[in-house]
C-alpha cells in the first residue's frame, strides 16, 4: 500500500431545501480507486466540477467518503483518534493564498503548524528556517504577508505545510489565482520539494503545462477517473482530452496537428526542444524544409 490509497470512494453532497429536508444528492466523487506511491509526483486534472477538489479533501480527512475507504499512510481517515496524525502526514495547500495565511509575519505563519503540533520552541525555529529556505522565501521571513505577491504568498503557504514535516503534500489548484509568473514560481517550488526533499506531491490543477513533469496523471470527469497514465501517454490521446474539455499544451497540439497532416512525428510530444528535435530529424529524412518549423520556437 502506498502513502495514499483510495478504494471505491464515493462522495455525495446532500442537497437540502429551505426547511432542511433532503431533496436529493449529487455524486461528486464516484467509485474512485487510486494508489499513490511514496515519493511520486502525481497530477490530478479535470475541468471545473469534475470532483477533483472533493477528492483532494479526502486525502486530508476534511471530508470522509460516503462509501469506500481512504487510507493515508496506512491509517483509515475515518479513525477519529488518528485525525491529527493524518493531517500532519498529508498537508494541504489551498487555492486562495490570502485565506490560508494566519500569521502577520511570514515566519510566524510558517510556525503555525508546528505550534499546533506542540513542537518545542527551538525546533519550531529550525523547521521554519529550513522550510522557508526550501521554497526560497527565507529573505522575506520578517515581512508582512500582505506585502507579498500572489506567488510569494503561495510559496509561504507551502512552507507552512512543509514545516509540519509531512510525507505528502496535496495542492488544491494552488496556481488558479496567480499570474503566469507566480504560477511558474509555485510550480518550480513544488517540483523542488519532490526532487530534493522526496516529498510525495499531489498537484490538482487544470493547467496542462504544470503536469508535464508528473510521474503519473489522473484525469477526472464527472467524479470518475477518466484517464490514467504518464503525461506522455495522456497527451498522446488528444481527441479524448478535447472531449473532456481540457486544453492540451500548445506544443503537443501543434505536433498533433502536424501529425494529422502527414508528418511522421512521435506521439505525445511535451516540450518545445522535443518537438524541434523531432522536426529536425523529420527534415533530415524528408530533405525538405517545414515552414511550421519556425513557429515552434515561439509558441
Amino acid at each position: 500500500m502506498g502513502i495514499i490509497k483510495a478504494q471505491d470512494v464515493v462522495y455525495e453532497y446532500v442537497k437540502r431545501d429551505e426547511e432542511g429536508n433532503v431533496e436529493g444528492s449529487i455524486r461528486a466523487v464516484d467509485q474512485v480507486s487510486l494508489d499513490i506511491e511514496q515519493g511520486d509526483f502525481i497530477a490530478i486534472l479535470g475541468h471545473n466540477g469534475s470532483g477533483k477538489s472533493t477528492l483532494a479533501k479526502h486525502m486530508n480527512a476534511i471530508l470522509y467518503p460516503t462509501e469506500g475507504c481512504v487510507w493515508v499512510d496506512g491509517k483509515d481517515t475515518r479513525a477519529e483518534e488518528e485525525l491529527w496524525n493524518i493531517r500532519q502526514s498529508a498537508g494541504m495547500v489551498f487555492q486562495n493564498p490570502d485565506n490560508q495565511i494566519i500569521g502577520q509575519v511570514v515566519e510566524e505563519d510558517v510556525g503555525f503548524g508546528p505550534e499546533n503540533m506542540g513542537v518545542p520552541t527551538k525546533e519550531i525555529w529550525e523547521r521554519v528556517e529550513e522550510s522557508l529556505k526550501a521554497v526560497g522565501m527565507y529573505q522575506y521571513r520578517k515581512h508582512s504577508p500582505n506585502k507579498l505577491s500572489g506567488g510569494q504568498k503561495q510559496r509561504v503557504s507551502i512552507a507552512g505545510v512543509l514545516a509540519m514535516h509531512p510525507k505528502c503534500i496535496v495542492l488544491d489548484e494552488p496556481t488558479a489565482m496567480l499570474d503566469p509568473n507566480g504560477r511558474k514560481e509555485v510550480v518550480r517550488a513544488v517540483r523542488a520539494l519532490n526532487d530534493v526533499e522526496k516529498i510525495t506531491v499531489i498537484l490538482i490543477t487544470h493547467y496542462m503545462e504544470e503536469i508535464v513533469h508528473a510521474d503519473k496523471v489522473f484525469v477526472m470527469d464527472q467524479g470518475r477517473i477518466a484517464m490514467e497514465g504518464t503525461p506522455r501517454e495522456i497527451f498522446s490521446r488528444v481527441e479524448e482530452l478535447k472531449a473532456l474539455r481540457l486544453d492540451v499544451p500548445q506544443v503537443t497540439l501543434l505536433a498533433y496537428e502536424l501529425q494529422k497532416q502527414g508528418l511522421d512525428l512521435p506521439r505525445g510530444i511535451l516540450t518545445i526542444p522535443e518537438l524541434v528535435a523531432a522536426l529536425e530529424r523529420e527534415k533530415g529524412s524528408l530533405k525538405k524544409d517545414t515552414p511550421e518549423g519556425k513557429d515552434k520556437k515561439c509558441p
Partner: peptide, 26 residues
Amino acid sequence: RRANDLALAMEARCYRGGEGRAKMKP
C-alpha cells in the same frame, strides 16, 4: 467566505485550540 476558507486551512494545519499548543515566540 474568507472565514470559512481560513477555518478549513487552520484545521488542515492541525489547529485544535489552545490545548497542547507550543509557542514559537514564548
